[in-house]
Lab assay of single mutants.
Amino acid sequence: MQIFVKTLTGKTITLEVEPSDTIENVKAKIQDKEGIPPDQQRLIFAGKQLEDGRTLSDYNIQKESTLHLVLR
């Protein structure tokens, strides 16, 4: 499924993921596309910060959901 990741600069990254993918996994995909190390990434969905060990389905993230990427 496709999800979108919006950065603070207003750029939107499109990722191909599975509901069973972990947040860690998603961060690795963002690193592949954008070169941002996962340890600098914070992903936010519905106002919650997403934890590395959880999966997209844990957070009920469905196709075409938009996550927000904050760098630390």
Rank of each mutant, 00 (worst) to 15 (best):
I3Y: 01
E16M: 13
Q2V: 05
R54Q: 10
V70W: 04
T66I: 09
R72W: 12
K48M: 09
L50P: 01
D58Y: 13
I23Q: 04
R54H: 11
N25G: 12
L67F: 04
L56M: 12
T22F: 14
S57E: 15
I13V: 08
R72G: 14
K6R: 13
S20I: 14
F4Q: 06
L50Q: 00
P37A: 14
Q40W: 07
V26R: 00
T55Y: 10
M1E: 05
L8E: 15
I36W: 13
D21K: 10
G10W: 07
A46W: 09
K48Y: 07
A28E: 05
R72K: 08
M1Q: 05
P19E: 05
I44D: 15
N25Q: 05
V70E: 13
T7R: 02
K6D: 08
S65M: 10
T22K: 13
V26P: 00
P19I: 09
E18H: 10
K27L: 13
T66Y: 08
L69P: 00
Y59W: 06
L67K: 01
K11C: 03
I61Y: 01
D32F: 10
L43F: 05
V26Q: 00
R54L: 07
T14V: 08
I23Y: 04
K11F: 14
I13Y: 11
G10M: 05
N25M: 07
L43E: 00
T12D: 15
I61S: 01
I13T: 04
I61E: 01
D32Q: 06
L71T: 09
V26W: 01
V26Y: 00
I13R: 03
V17P: 01
L43M: 07
Q40V: 08
R54W: 07
I44T: 12
Q40N: 10
Q62N: 09
I13G: 01
Q40T: 06
L56P: 01
V70A: 15
P19D: 08
K29Q: 11
I30W: 01
N60P: 07
D32R: 10
E34Q: 03
V26M: 11
P19N: 10
Q62H: 07
Q2N: 15
D21C: 02
E64H: 05
A46K: 05
T14H: 07
E64Q: 04
N60V: 04
I30T: 03
L43R: 00
